[in-house]
Amino acid sequence: MKSLILTTGARLLIALFLVFSLYVLLRGHNAPGGGFIGGLIAACGFAIHAFASGVAEARRALHVDPRTIGTLGLACALIAGLMALPLGAEPFAGIWGEIADYKISSVLLFDIGVYLAVVGGILTLIFALEETL
């Protein structure tokens, strides 16, 4: 099913969804939001693209296999948890550092991992279901 309105609208919406998902991801540190909901929003963006222009087109726009994205997310989260090992802290304890006056932490890395895992997982499911139907 091709719809001109949906295809044109989708192009605008995807950009909006992706930017908003990043905003929610970063905001999640101190306020409602975070990697999970951010990942859902980003996945929604690509899902709309898949509905509008087909799964093959959405896969091309994504460049990477969604399963790989999900696994990379798992790897990010694991690295965030394992970072405490060489520093002698407890497993999954938050590690904080400062680069040019910006505080960064393993907590953010973990959240990014969740974000990627959710994007990868949801898109794997949606693409697989779309393709089999």
Binding site: L125, L129, T132
Partner: peptide, 20 residues
């Protein structure tokens, strides 16, 4: 809810394959 969603999505995929 998240886990339930994942499991349900898998079960749905399995149902489609079973139907095929």
């Amino acid at each position: 809810i998240v886990i339930g969603f994942g499991l349900f999505a898998f079960a749905l995929g399995l149902t489609i394959r079973a139907y095929r």
